Amino acid sequence: MPELDAHLPFESAAMPVTGMAADYVDGHFIAPHTHRRAQFLYATSGVMVIETAAGRWVVPPTRGVWLLANVPHTVRMRGVVNMKTLFVNPDAAPGLPTTDCVLDVSPLLRELILAASILPLAYVADSRDGRLMRFLLDELRALPVLPFHLPWPTDPRLNRVCTHLAAHPDDPATVGDWATTLAMSSKTFHRQFQQHTGITFGRWRQQARLLLSLEQLAQGDKILHVALQHGYSSQSAYSAMFKRHFGVSPSDFYR
């Protein structure tokens, strides 16, 4: 696949950190693939939806996702995505993330990533370019992990529930409704859902609705329309929950 072949020089370069840039149209899908190095994906515009066997990450501007080496994943673009990618050796610096996660991107790190994405692959370690990359690694290690991950259950029955809710986030079915559908008690449903995802069903659905709504916001949909399509009774109810979770209102999120 040509777009994956484009990564190969950056993954096989001699230097411990390399950066590249690529632009994608709305809806573009990158099929399942892996990388031999850890990867940090960051978009200056648009939203990236990254999926692995362990779950889904929704990554808006001002955030980036760290994926460990050899993790199979897909990437789907929502809105026009200007992507910057770093490929990092696991031993490039101590204290780098040891799990897949979404990280905050400070204004300083953003500028470092933009600079790294246009550096030559064969930069000299003891040079301005080399020092810039070391500074970038220092910033990566200092970033806070953010709650943009949606864990996905491997149990086929619970997977069916989550797949349905991802396609129909406004579905108001209760735990009791789902327990009946799956021929189990509500108590068993609660216990198994938390066992397979690490969080309660109520929290999972709330997080799913908020993260899925980011994709529509990235495409310019009106906030009221997004709120109603994701199970909220009003724009104000959606905005209040959105601000509680992300710290800003939906209208301010992409500024």
Rank of each mutant, 00 (worst) to 15 (best):
L211E: 09
F87V: 09
H190E: 15
S106V: 10
P151T: 11
L96E: 07
A142P: 04
S213H: 05
G19E: 02
L210W: 13
A38R: 08
I223L: 07
R131I: 07
A43Y: 13
F246N: 09
M184V: 13
C162H: 06
L121R: 05
V49F: 07
G198P: 08
H230E: 03
H28D: 15
L4Q: 11
Q195L: 15
V47P: 05
D138K: 00
Y42A: 00
L136S: 05
M15E: 12
W178L: 07
P97L: 09
A179W: 12
S117N: 03
P153H: 00
L140K: 00
L158F: 02
F40S: 04
M83K: 10
R131M: 08
H33R: 12
L41R: 07
T197W: 08
V58T: 05
F246D: 02
L67F: 15
T197E: 09
P156G: 09
D177H: 10
T52S: 00
T200V: 15
I199R: 11
P32V: 15
T18Q: 06
Q194Y: 10
L228C: 03
T44K: 06
I30M: 04
A173W: 11
G231N: 00
K243Q: 11
G247Y: 01
D129R: 01
P144E: 03
Y24E: 06
T85W: 14
V81F: 01
V102M: 13
L182I: 06
F201V: 08
A69I: 02
H196G: 15
G220P: 05
A14E: 08
Y254T: 01
M77I: 08
S234L: 01
L150P: 03
T99K: 01
H73W: 00
L114D: 09
F10I: 08
D104Q: 10
V80I: 15
M15C: 14
R205P: 06
G220K: 05
H28T: 15
L132N: 02
N70M: 05
I223Y: 03
A38E: 09
S127F: 02
A53S: 13
T34R: 14
V161S: 13
V80E: 13
L41Q: 14
Q206K: 14
A167F: 12
R128Q: 08
G247S: 04
G176E: 15
T98L: 14
D126W: 09
L103S: 15
R205I: 06
L4K: 12
